[in-house]
Design a binder for these strands. Structure first.
Lengths: 263, 263
DNA sequence: GGTGAGTTCACAATTCCTTGACATTATTTT
DNA sequence: AAAATAATGTCAAGGAATTGTGAACTCACC
């Protein structure tokens, strides 16, 4: 599973985890109107080496790439060139990525945005809440991971109209973009971590997730708490969302392995 | 940002603040065929203090560690000793980590590499990834974060055998990713070991497996129980999955040799 | 300083792994 | 073929490991 450039030649068999989705979707796109043109990615980033590296990777993966070197230019290109997705650095000259994101979400609410944040920046605020970015990575990140997230985001947004903003199970409604959870119609207050954990569960249904994996994926690499911290948050989620927290029906324990969400 | 965690010696009792996760993963690791031998990490780094610190930490977390002090030696060891993952410093005598990475990715495309770069080597970051490294950190980094990234990379590369989601035999369905077994549609509760054992059987069909081998592959090297323990687990599997446990049709005894699964 | 989220800790509750004894079956020896 | 020996089947109990849970603690932010 190589990331890229050292594919001098195009590998014959599909790489196991390589984007099987986009190949296939060329002909048989789901529910959508068949045809699938190339996706256009806008990269807004001031560091030339990073731009070059990302451009190579995206083009190798079959995307069209346009770029901008600062926030103002980025916003302009985003509005003018109608990209399918924007990769947006936070730290940039002239206009911060946060502001670009905010404004872009007003003027082009449907365009998905992936933010690149430096380590230590408040990522909680970047996603969801005020800004509305669709995903983010903290630098330094692996290009492979960025590619994976781009694919995932594109799949989400292009996947059918009925890609529901709101996930439901039992009497619970989870509005992911709105950071809101309701139960039997009434608001349930979840903390940021609880919400992030819940979302991760929802997006990996019926899959057993180890505590380590949850820590990596939900908590991130920087701060790596005790695995028991996961348990504590599980308890909170159960208390808030399970009909009977002592006998969970949705957030299940897989003894010796981790937890599993079944919706 | 500490460079080293005070995991110094290996306490027998679990260190309170250590991630209990790694202990646990000895039996049921995700999606993989139950088996979980120790991972071998190659550290290629010229600074002895750094090597010592990393070795301590990796060994504490249950990895086997081999080392090399410069690029040439690192490449040789990587080719000779077949490590599961390589931690590669960029700045080194004789051969730069970048060159090692490049060559290694040609000769052993599948071995994951995590690069260590000095701060300020901004370009090298991207270059490192262009060369096919799977992840990287900038010095000084926290050992915790390195550990987390190592785990994440190993999980990514070892998991994606996403091919067969569900194995079936008779009226039994085994969903590996979800740690779930169904029989005639109804859930069957298996313990972690039972599940790991079953998965191992499934992935070695029609092959006679000795108790010793099962202990090695499913139980792991660390704790090595009585061979009769295997029998006990076999009994449980038969009771839960065989149409007639007294006359097994799928989990067969090979008298004097071990057991065999025929699906 | 107060507040709340996140984390850690301690202890209880639970699960299940392991062991050993004995029963049963298979294989070898007489 | 019967007896002797070895291997496997089975089960219950003890102990180890894992998880549930409430409370204390830390830290950033008002």
């Amino acid at each position: 599973m190589k990331t890229r450039i050292n594919f001098t030649a195009r590998p014959k068999g599909r790489a196991p985890e390589a984007r099987s989705g986009s190949d296939k979707s060329e002909y048989t796109d789901d529910t959508e109107a068949g045809a699938r043109r190339r996706r256009r990615i806008l990269i807004v980033e001031d560091e030339p080496a990073m731009v070059a590296g990302l451009r190579d990777n995206f083009e190798y993966e079959g995307y069209d790439v346009i770029t901008a070197e600062d926030g103002v230019a980025g916003l302009e290109r985003a509005l003018a060139d109608d990209p399918d997705l924007v990769v947006l650095d936070v730290m940039m000259p002239r206009m911060s990525g946060l502001d670009v994101c905010k404004q872009l979400k007003v003027k082009r609410p449907s365009v998905p945005i992936i933010m690149l944040t430096a380590r230590g920046q408040e990522i909680d605020k970047v996603v969801g809440l005020e800004l509305g970015a669709d995903d983010y990575l903290t630098k330094p990140f692996s290009v492979r991971e960025l590619m994976a997230r781009v694919r995932a985001v594109l799949r989400r947004v292009s996947a059918p109209a009925r890609a529901p903003e709101v996930y439901r199970f039992n009497d619970v409604e989870v509005n992911i973009r709105g950071n809101e959870v309701r139960r039997a119609g009434a608001r349930v207050e979840l903390s940021a971590k609880e919400f992030a954990l819940l979302v991760y569960f929802i997006s990996h249904p019926a899959e057993t997730l180890s505590r380590d994996r949850l820590l990596d994926e939900v908590w991130g690499y920087e701060n790596y708490p005790n695995t028991r911290t996961v348990d504590t948050h599980i308890v909170h989620l159960r208390q808030k969302l399970e009909p009977n927290p002592e006998e969970p029906r949705f957030i299940l324990t897989v003894h010796g392995s981790g937890y599993k969400f079944v919706g």
